[in-house]
Design a binder for these strands. Structure first.
Lengths: 335, 335
DNA sequence: AACTCTACCTGAATCGATTCAAGCTCGTTT
DNA sequence: AAACGAGCTTGAATCGATTCAGGTAGAGTT
């Protein structure tokens, strides 16, 4: 019942070899054959059997993407960028969201290996390097997304988090804020420490005196943001910071929620607020959030492009691609 | 270099047939053989070549999921549910987000057909029925997600939108609201008209007199919500509705943004606000949104389960699975 | 001892696309 | 006229897992 290349060959009155050539190197085939084969394909509604193709030619037309926080719209955008690039190469994306669960991670890595994906993109939160090394040992090109890792021997595509932290705090200082709190954690996350480092640099290099306080959180979630905000508000009013820099937009959204009291919004007049990621929902918040934008789609596109290149040339040397962050000013910092 | 079943057979001192049997019907093999083969697999780090498997046995270990609005967290959750179910069956998900672009849609359907996916889940916004029928004609089980379609001949998994609309408006009425506006559109979207129908039913069946006004929007986006909110606020104050029912949470978030004026939030005191979908970001808004929850993960799980069943039994009759919606009360309706 | 059964194992054939050595045609060169 | 080469086509071999007809060993039965 399913239509094979043999059926097409019969219909077009040529050999299977010729049909295959029409499909893969049309310029080595007479235009008459191309014509007849194309028409036969059309008439029969033939589509290539990718399994057979993969088996014989060893080419794979899928790339795996493992995301460790599928609820975060930032990763959604990254996936979208990767998708765009992939579909222009006729490649489909195998998607796996692990929610930071190591067992799910193993499941996906095995599944993707069975599928013989052409390459793997992974956005790691925790420590998966040993797992990954083993994975790559089976010959599959692997690129880290949103995680700079010069040491690990993997290529990566990410944003300069330190620069982003600096941008955020410089912006707050320019807006006249002097008592700034950095809200974020845990501190074993590279993203967090980098953003804080940038914030510190900006505070120290400022022309005026700036206090930078650290308010630690247990995770980068909305709930943790709400909790941190509530803690801040229990202080006597004169000890409130006049600006908050949240390590990501989810935290910032949580903070914003806490900073509504009695129908009155403390943002931006009493307290300025800036986040990180430029999450579309942060832009759409009751008070639109200022944020540090990561070029998420571009990250996805680039990561996919690199993984394909590495798959094509296994000798290639891992390279770190770092994009600059961008300050986006909205109402939450008075802009 | 890559390890095949033959290598495993040699290492374990058995034939390839036996290795295959260990993999596929271990109970027909002596426990000693199972033991030795398993160990050989372990030692060699063998993983099945899915291409060969698919080619010979015709079984596919992937399911395609085409989402038409990848930015909407609701679909994210649905995908997550499908993923959970899929990975417990050793199945991986091929993901495609079309952003309502028909050409991308065609690209993905072709790609998935080449991959010979075991089945297809699709969350359609516009009209793709003819496309889909052709797709299914090639023998691939197809299930619609979030779209009831008794007429189309496809199975579907969705939520009773009419009941959801009714729940929302009944809740507003119970809260003492009498001048309710339904915000949503366009009206060729089934979800919109169903939710409105439910709202109308609730208003008409109420014990008290309730006015239900319709505020049309061009799309279900945050921006359209902002615009609709702004339009409402230009009216003289006494003509404001006292409650808004948004056809989804994105609209509701936009409305919420418009209902902040001069640092003062009109929600919920002046105007109550309820959305639809129970988007996690709506729950985390400055004023947490009341909403009508769709059991999104369950929808995904169920859709995947059904598509596998249909793939296993091509004679099966399309069935419509409808889940009940659930009212979630938060601050935005005074709750 | 001959026969039957059960429990396992074996290995060749198979799926469909690709590849490539070999072949064919025809025009050009010597 | 023979030799050559360009341009194109052919079809058998191949990739690796699965399947299944056929085979073997050993226990049980008569």
């Amino acid at each position: 019942m399913p239509i094979s290349i043999r059926d097409v060959a019969v219909r077009a009155g040529v050999s299977v070899g010729t049909v295959s050539n029409v499909l893969n190197r049309p310029d080595e085939v007479s235009s008459e054959s191309v014509e007849r084969v194309t028409q036969a394909i059309e008439e029969l509604g033939y589509v290539r059997n990718d399994a057979a193709r993969k088996l014989r030619a060893g080419v794979s037309t899928t790339v795996g993407f493992v995301v460790l926080d599928g609820q975060n719209p930032f990763y959604n955008d990254v996936v979208r960028g990767a998708e765009d690039e992939a579909s222009s190469h006729g490649i489909a994306i195998l998607y796996g969201n692990t929610d930071d669960d190591p067992s799910r991670e193993k499941v996906y890595l095995d599944l993707f290996r069975e599928q013989q994906v052409r390459g793997l993109l992974i956005a790691p939160y925790g420590d998966v390097m040993t797992q990954l090394r083993r994975f790559r040992a089976s010959g599959i090109a692997t690129v880290l997304v949103d995680r700079f890792s010069a040491d690990s021997g993997f290529s990566s595509v990410s944003v300069d988090s330190v620069a982003g932290g600096r941008l955020a705090v410089e912006h707050l200082i320019e807006g006249g804020r002097r008592r700034i709190a950095f809200v974020g954690g845990p501190f074993d996350m590279r993203q967090v420490t980098d953003r804080l480092a940038g914030a510190r640099a900006a505070a120290e290099n400022a022309a005026v005196h700036v206090e930078l306080e650290v308010v630690p959180t247990a995770a980068m979630t909305v709930d943790e943001g709400v909790a941190a905000g509530a803690r801040l508000l229990t202080r006597p009013r004169r000890e409130w910071p006049d600006a908050l820099f949240a390590a990501n937009d989810l935290l910032a959204l949580g903070l914003l929620q806490s900073l509504v009291s009695g129908g009155r919004l403390l943002v931006p007049d009493e307290i300025a607020l800036i986040g990180f990621d430029d999450n579309p929902f942060a832009a759409a918040a009751a008070v639109p959030l200022s944020s540090i934008r990561q070029p998420s789609r571009m990250i996805g596109r680039t990561a996919l492009r690199i993984v394909l290149e590495e798959a094509a040339d296994p000798e290639s040397i891992p390279r770190q691609t770092v994009f600059p962050p961008e300050l986006i000013v909205r109402s939450s910092t008075g802009g």
